[in-house]
Design a protein around this nucleic acid. Sequence first.
DNA 1: TAACAAACATACCGTTCTGTCTATTCCTGT
DNA 2: ACAGGAATAGACAGAACGGTATGTTTGTTA
Lengths: 193, 193
Amino acid sequence: MSKKRDQLVEAALELFGQEGFHATGIDRVLEVAGVAKMTLYNHFRSKEELILAVLRVRDERWRNQFMLGVERRAKDPRDRLLAIFDELGDWFADPGFSGCMFINATAEYADQDDPIHAASAEHKRLIEKYVRELAAQAGAREPGVLASQLCLLMEGAVVYTQVCPVKDKGCAGATAKRAAGVLIDHALDGVSC
Amino acid sequence: MSKKRDQLVEAALELFGQEGFHATGIDRVLEVAGVAKMTLYNHFRSKEELILAVLRVRDERWRNQFMLGVERRAKDPRDRLLAIFDELGDWFADPGFSGCMFINATAEYADQDDPIHAASAEHKRLIEKYVRELAAQAGAREPGVLASQLCLLMEGAVVYTQVCPVKDKGCAGATAKRAAGVLIDHALDGVSC
DNA sequence: TAACAAACATACCGTTCTGTCTATTCCTGT
DNA sequence: ACAGGAATAGACAGAACGGTATGTTTGTTA
């Protein structure tokens, strides 16, 4: 499409991710993108529309990389459920990690009806759907329940890594993986022994 | 101490919680508090200091209510670990629920060295410490590990409730409780059957 | 009643914010 | 070569931002 438009979205991805949405002024985005202000307002009606475009790109890229990573790590569906947390651990260890952009977005745009909030909710919904499919393939008795539980661990690990400073950045991923193992075993094997 | 100071902190608690930190201007706080601007700057050096004061109050109140609620719900340490999630469920169902103020704060102040970020990390650290004590009292083989796992579920439930719109607001609490039950059983009872 | 501090209202500072406008220049396709 | 759309710089608007500088009013205490 348009090269300048892409530059704007890339710069906004970086800045909104690192500094936050309200804290990042439009002028800063223009400076980093190397683009004039009118060019921005030719491509986007407002800052909010730029944010929504950024979230769309981020959602697509993140989920693609996530699913690809999980499926590359393991073939067996059960192992793939565990591989989720290895994938997360690698993400956490990335020096540019600055939490989940969608969690951060809901923090800044708390109103449920805000399009930005809605886009974030949709992102989480799609992730849970994917995990539910993996759980079903693994033969969980209640795939929906197991997926919900694993998603709680995922989000918890993301938040913990973002909030609490620790040396080993992947450690929350490892903790979550251990918990996930117990939950998966319980959901797949026998009943309560 | 000072009545006006309290009014400022109360108003800021409400506004920062509902609208966010950057999105809430100092003038709005003054308007809600019914206080003059100079009074604010007599009590606080800056907006950041007001935010820090708000976080201190929030941390103290939240943890007190949380611990009190958990200990009122159950006497047996093992049951108390589960009661955590009933307490969370009630919190989620509160119509004024707008997520965890400390998670939101780290979203807006991403820099690890920012005092606001540090205060949020300390809040989470104190919660985990409390859960670890409960886990130890319950006789977990590895109280630290179990506490970490349960905290991941807690944070995950908070985030999910905040991000995803559902009818039953306590539902993430129930999901987390069910997962917690499995993890607690596994950490307390025998090995893998 | 006199003294004093706390809170008051109001105006103002400089900066930054999103968004608009205009006039000029660049680039590309025919 | 040249026309036309895209992008440019830069000024501008109007509002909101955090924070300060004024004097004035109020309430308590001695």
